[in-house]
């Protein structure tokens, strides 16, 4: 899949730990870890809403599309 979740980058910018963010948005550490490592198959609007609220960002800051043609352009 070409969509990458950039949660780790935004979390590093905001200097917030996984446990702290999980507590703030009422998710379990393991579920947030699934999101962070890109293993998630889908994200609820409510989860995106909570993430954007706590990380003070836009949904576009958390998601990035990397299709095959884009990867080739980067090369």
């Amino acid at each position: 899949m070409g969509i990458i979740f950039r949660l780790d980058r935004v979390m590093a910018d905001r200097k917030i730990s996984l446990g702290e963010l999980a507590k703030r948005i009422d998710l379990t550490d393991s579920n947030l870890s699934i999101l962070k490592t890109g293993k998630a198959k889908a994200v609820r609007i409510a989860t995106m809403d909570a993430l954007c609220r706590e990380l003070r960002c836009q949904p576009g800051d958390l998601l990035e599309y990397q299709g095959e043609e884009m990867v080739e352009k980067d090369k």
Partner: peptide, 8 residues
């Protein structure tokens, strides 16, 4: 079930 479990 897998889809449900991996929907965060």
């Amino acid at each position: 079930q897998e889809d449900h479990d991996l929907t965060i």
